Simulated scan of single mutants.
Amino acid sequence: MSKRTEKTIVDIAEELKLSISTVSRALNNHPNISVKTKEKVKKMANKLGYRPNAMAAGLRNSKSRTIGLVVPRISMFFPATISTVIQNKLYEHGYHVLICQSNDSLEQEIALAETLYSTRIDALAVSSTLYTTDFSHFDIFKDNNIPLVFFDRVPKDYQAKVVRGDDYLGGYTVTEHLIEKGCKDIVHISGPLTCSLYVDRVAGYKNALRKHKIPFKKSRVFYHELTKENAQQACEKIFAKQPWPDGVFAANDTTAITILEYCRKLNLRVPEDIKIVGYSNDPRAEIITPTITSVDQFPSLMGERVAAALLDLMQQPVSNPQRYSEEIVPIKLIERASSATTVATRKTSSKKKVK
């Protein structure tokens, strides 16, 4: 089987008896080339199956018009929404986005960083894995003045642009909300503390307890990847013996939904016996019964700010060294039925007594 030979602008030029420079300009819609010639060149390009070499053009212009984007898992609601917004916003400015997922594997994240650098991307945006504590595999981008933006899961003291949610306020707000609803024994199911998100949310949880003079208990906090399976295991420990908690702060909505299902098996009423709050305002939280109180992290807004940061950095002189700068996206508690205030119902008769 013979190897397919790619057609080039040289082939087009030979077929049409034109100069290579004329063909190149026609394909790039140069104003000095007539409409008739442009149409003739493009028609021949289609006939020959010519494909423009974006990589070669990038080498000539020192720009690939391509941005790298690394996220933990594209299947999750929050990073999926952010990725879509980033891609759409950058496309409006003539950039294409290579979206890669690390699957929360540090090994894969390191390999992706190397691959994307070799691809000659113009900039890189990263939401790191749960276990990334050393960010030195991104040094190659800084050292070569390639704009670098971290978002959502971010380093604390790395010389780069950071766009993150207000996770401390989120943790504080959820915990205080449960306390104000009457909860005095609140469990917090957190992600691993190797990740910036959960360090901040746990700090908010602890400080809200402290403010309201409720003792912090290590036995009431669980640290693990926020999967359904891990949430079920946590429930088995939480409800193994009484007293059972009267409130649960879950660091994502998958965990909150799993806890709700577990409580049903125990005939625990939500919110009467136990109140539940999740995090990230996943659409599922609004359609389950009872609906689940959650924290909106405004992923679309974060995506817009990441795209804006990338565009801004790419316009700056390449000689400018990257420095740490931080932009915080707000959060908002969305109160729903799972943490509603319960009021004792009175039995009243609609029938009037007949004298």
Rank of each mutant, 00 (worst) to 15 (best):
residue 4 R to C: 04
residue 6 E to G: 09
residue 12 I to D: 00
residue 17 K to G: 14
residue 17 K to W: 05
residue 18 L to R: 06
residue 22 T to N: 00
residue 22 T to W: 00
residue 35 V to G: 01
residue 36 K to L: 07
residue 42 K to G: 09
residue 43 K to A: 15
residue 51 R to W: 12
residue 52 P to G: 14
residue 56 A to F: 10
residue 57 A to H: 12
residue 60 R to K: 15
residue 61 N to C: 11
residue 71 V to I: 15
residue 74 I to Q: 09
residue 78 F to C: 05
residue 78 F to E: 02
residue 79 P to G: 05
residue 79 P to H: 07
residue 80 A to Y: 00
residue 90 L to C: 06
residue 90 L to A: 06
residue 91 Y to L: 12
residue 91 Y to R: 15
residue 93 H to I: 06
residue 95 Y to N: 07
residue 99 I to P: 03
residue 100 C to T: 07
residue 103 N to C: 06
residue 106 L to F: 10
residue 107 E to H: 11
residue 108 Q to K: 13
residue 112 L to P: 03
residue 112 L to F: 06
residue 113 A to H: 01
residue 113 A to M: 05
residue 118 S to F: 06
residue 122 D to G: 13
residue 122 D to W: 13
residue 123 A to H: 09
residue 124 L to G: 08
residue 127 S to Q: 12
residue 135 F to T: 07
residue 141 F to V: 03
residue 146 I to W: 00
residue 147 P to L: 03
residue 150 F to C: 10
residue 151 F to H: 02
residue 151 F to E: 04
residue 152 D to I: 03
residue 153 R to G: 01
residue 154 V to L: 01
residue 156 K to P: 00
residue 157 D to V: 09
residue 160 A to Q: 08
residue 161 K to P: 04
residue 162 V to E: 04
residue 165 G to D: 09
residue 170 G to D: 01
residue 171 G to E: 05
residue 172 Y to R: 11
residue 172 Y to W: 14
residue 174 V to T: 10
residue 176 E to S: 14
residue 180 E to Y: 15
residue 181 K to E: 15
residue 182 G to C: 14
residue 186 I to M: 05
residue 193 L to N: 11
residue 195 C to M: 13
residue 199 V to C: 13
residue 202 V to Y: 06
residue 203 A to W: 00
residue 206 K to S: 04
residue 210 R to T: 12
residue 215 P to K: 09
residue 215 P to D: 06
residue 221 V to A: 05
residue 224 H to W: 03
residue 227 T to K: 04
residue 235 C to T: 05
residue 235 C to N: 06
residue 239 F to Y: 14
residue 250 A to S: 11
residue 253 D to V: 09
residue 263 C to T: 13
residue 266 L to D: 08
residue 266 L to W: 12
residue 268 L to C: 12
residue 272 E to H: 15
residue 275 K to V: 13
residue 276 I to F: 10
residue 277 V to G: 04
residue 279 Y to H: 09
residue 281 N to L: 02
residue 283 P to D: 11
residue 285 A to I: 07
residue 289 T to H: 15
residue 293 T to N: 08
residue 294 S to Y: 07
residue 294 S to D: 06
residue 296 D to I: 02
residue 298 F to I: 04
residue 299 P to C: 07
residue 304 E to N: 11
residue 304 E to W: 03
residue 306 V to E: 03
residue 309 A to M: 02
residue 314 M to N: 06
residue 314 M to W: 06
residue 315 Q to H: 13
residue 315 Q to R: 13
residue 323 R to Y: 07
residue 323 R to P: 01
residue 326 E to R: 08
residue 327 E to I: 08
residue 330 P to A: 10
residue 336 R to I: 08
residue 336 R to P: 01
residue 347 K to C: 11
residue 349 S to R: 13
residue 350 S to E: 12
residue 350 S to R: 14
residue 351 K to P: 00
residue 351 K to L: 13
residue 352 K to T: 10
